[in-house]
Amino acid sequence: MTPTLTPATPTSLDLLRQYHHSPSIGLRNQIVQLNQGLVQKIAHRVSHQCSEPFEDLAQLGYLGLIRAIERFEPHHGYAFSSFAVPYIRGEMLHFLRDRSATLKIPRRIKDLQKSAHRTQETLRINLQRRPTAQEIAAHLNISLQDWQELQLADRNRFPLSLDSTFSPYSDVPVPLGDTLVDEHYQSCQRSEEDRQQLQAALAQLEIRDRTVLEWVFIQGLSRKEVAQRIGVSPITVSRWIQQSMQQLMTILQSPLQLSA
Rank of each mutant, 00 (worst) to 15 (best):
R208E: 11
D146H: 06
D146T: 09
V216Y: 07
Y185Q: 10
Q199E: 15
F217D: 02
W147I: 01
E193P: 01
L176D: 00
I218G: 05
T211W: 13
E225C: 02
K224I: 15
S143V: 02
K224N: 12
W147Y: 15
S170N: 06
D209G: 07
P159C: 08
W147H: 14
Q196H: 05
A153E: 10
Q196A: 12
D182S: 05
V174T: 12
Q148R: 09
W240F: 06
L213S: 10
F166D: 07
S238R: 11
G177D: 01
V181W: 04
S222N: 01
V172F: 03
D194F: 10
L198V: 08
C188K: 15
Q197M: 14
F217P: 00
D182M: 00
L180H: 04
R155D: 08
Q242C: 12
S191L: 15
P173G: 09
T179G: 01
E193D: 12
S167G: 05
S143N: 02
P175S: 10
F166Y: 13
P159T: 05
L202K: 03
R208V: 09
Q228I: 04
T179L: 10
Q186P: 00
A201V: 01
T211P: 02
Q151Y: 01
L180D: 02
R157A: 11
R190H: 11
E149W: 09
